[in-house]
Amino acid sequence: MRAINPNNPHGDSHTHHILSVLVQNRPGVLARVASLFARRGYNIFSLAVAPTEEPDYSRITIVVDISATPLEQIVKQLFKLIDVVRITELDPRRSVERELMVVTVRADGSQRGQVVELANIFEARVLAVGAEAMTVSLDGNPEKLDDFEELLRAYGIVESQRTGRIALPKLDREARKGAAKGKAS
């Protein structure tokens, strides 16, 4: 994982790719995927993993910031992992993306109202309130989270945590780009 560059939190849009990787839910599968990226010298920008509707399978959503040529290579190398069943590259324009952020922001008496107002505008939720700070959560499109985070920065972010994005293809049109069928050796 790489530290987020606040000026370009999700990297250059030209090199931002979302891979949805369906894997057999077996011990060590996440380690296999992660160590493959490390071994081949690629950075994972964000990663989210959880079981799917079928308990035997998990879906790993990986955001990578690389250009098209190494992406093709990393997809092929990933596909060689025995536990990897399917890899779909999700085109951000044709998929629905969600991410969750929890952030503790400095908000003493004089600022609390402003932060709450901002939270309301973004439809964020206030999770906890202290004397000097408050914790809010927001889920939504990652770009919306970026905007919210940027505005909160003015008050002073004490701590924040994002989940990494998860994504599925949009329903209304063909969303899969470069879905790899069959299986590599």
Partner: peptide, 8 residues
């Protein structure tokens, strides 16, 4: 048992 392994 190996749904992810289908060499071409």
């Amino acid at each position: 048992s190996l749904p992810g392994y289908r060499p071409t």
